[in-house]
Every structure is written in structure tokens, then in C-alpha cells.
Computed example of a mutant assay.
Amino acid sequence: MTPLDRHLTALAGAPTDRDLSGLEREVWRVIDARPALSTRRLRPIQWAAVSAALVMGAVTGTFAMTAFDRPSEMSVFSAHSPLAPSTLLADHA
């Protein structure tokens, strides 16, 4: 048996120093006593977060799309690849 097992066994057999039977009830009483944070106060923060995410997504998408304007010559799976067999064969036909 490891020292940790011995300590846990001793701890399991030790009596508690206070009654824990009403602990959950007391925790919920304290939570219910706190004032609820109204959603009206959070509304501007929510709108700001959604607006920031929308602007950030639009800007990121715009910059990402500029990279897809022209396919690279090495893009094997591109629909308009200059090195695709269909493109190379069409020029010689």
C-alpha cells in the first residue's frame, strides 16, 4: 500500500468536524440571495460582441477571398488549372 493510499484510508475513517447535511441547501440559499444579472444590462455587450464578430468575419473573409482570385499553376485540383490534362489537350486539338 502506498503512502497516499494509507493517508486516504485514514482520512476516510476520520470523523468530520461539522455537519455537512445542509451544505447543499445553504449553497442554494446564498445563490438565490444574490441579485440576478438582468439581460437588459447585458444587451449592449451582446450587441457589441455580435457586431465585432460580424465585422471580423467579413474582413477576414474579404482578405481570404483575395487569395483565391487566381489559381496557382501548381493547383492540381483547380477547375481552371493551366497544367490540367484537359487544358493541355484542348490546346492541341
Rank of each mutant, 00 (worst) to 15 (best):
R6V: 10
R6W: 05
H7W: 05
L8T: 03
T9N: 02
L11A: 09
A12K: 01
A12F: 01
A12G: 01
A12R: 01
A14Q: 02
A14Y: 00
P15T: 03
T16W: 11
D17V: 04
D17K: 14
D17A: 09
D19A: 00
D19E: 01
S21K: 02
S21P: 01
S21H: 03
G22K: 12
G22E: 15
L23G: 07
R25F: 13
R25Y: 08
E26M: 15
E26W: 06
E26I: 04
E26V: 12
E26Y: 04
V27K: 13
V27H: 04
R29K: 11
V30D: 11
I31L: 15
D32Y: 07
D32C: 12
A33L: 10
R34W: 14
R34M: 13
P35A: 15
P35N: 05
P35H: 09
A36S: 06
A36V: 14
A36D: 08
L37V: 08
S38F: 04
T39P: 08
R40V: 06
R40E: 09
R40T: 09
R40F: 06
R40W: 02
R41L: 15
R41C: 06
R41G: 14
R41H: 10
R43F: 04
R43D: 06
P44G: 05
I45Q: 13
Q46L: 15
W47C: 12
A48P: 00
A48K: 06
A49P: 10
V50Q: 07
V50F: 10
S51C: 14
S51W: 07
A52Q: 04
A52C: 03
A52T: 09
A52G: 06
L54I: 12
M56I: 08
M56S: 15
M56N: 10
G57S: 10
G57K: 09
A58N: 11
A58C: 15
V59G: 10
V59P: 01
V59R: 14
G61H: 04
G61D: 01
G61E: 06
T62V: 05
F63N: 05
F63I: 08
F63W: 11
A64F: 06
M65N: 13
T66P: 00
T66C: 09
T66M: 14
D69N: 11
R70A: 11
R70D: 07
P71S: 06
S72I: 02
S72F: 14
E73G: 13
E73Q: 05
